[in-house]
Amino acid sequence: NTIFEAAMKQCGVSIAYNIEELIDLMAAFTCPCLPKGNKLGILAESGGGAVAGADSAFEFGLDIPVLSKARQQELTDRLKGVIPPFSAPKNPIDLVWPPMENRVKILVDCAEILLKEVDSLIIMDYAVFNSDYVKGMQDLQNRVRKPVFLAPCFPAKRQAELAKLTLKGVPSFTIPERAVKAMATAVKYSQYVQSIK
């Protein structure tokens, strides 16, 4: 097993240890861009999801950097009067249930600010999966050329929407840990590709 894993690593092959991981990796690699480094941003509407994601990031070797003061201020300014003032704008970012009105724009704006200082982003939200949401996420990813994965809340009721987003190049996962693990594998593959250039 050690020899097999070493050989696969030397060739840049990603290993799935069970069928669930195989599906997750296939979803992750539908993304049109790879993370250039291991700095991960987490944008959540649920503090628990953010904690689960951060713990997994540590486990799989991803870094969750605290945002610079300038970026924290940018986020605070964007969210002023939109969400309660006790949210921490450091990373992970907890949006504390933003209003339904303009929700896609709020998520996209915050994501864009966060992506100025990280290589990839995982969003955990309660958004309504309409065409605006899909387009907003696609446009964001195409604009910043950094991968954005989703791990929406209430995934059991949203299998069809998750599949739709994944097919549009925005990989979506049922729980934060699976999104983080898949992102960590994408980072490893990206590092391999950079190392052979």
Binding site: F4, C11, G12, V13, A16, I19, F29, V193
Partner: peptide, 26 residues
Amino acid sequence: GLKYASDFLELAKRATRKKPVIVWKG
């Protein structure tokens, strides 16, 4: 066996330059 492994690794190296390759270790 060694020939098979060697051919496989060469193929994998060529492939991963272009696209991600996943091995399901089932």
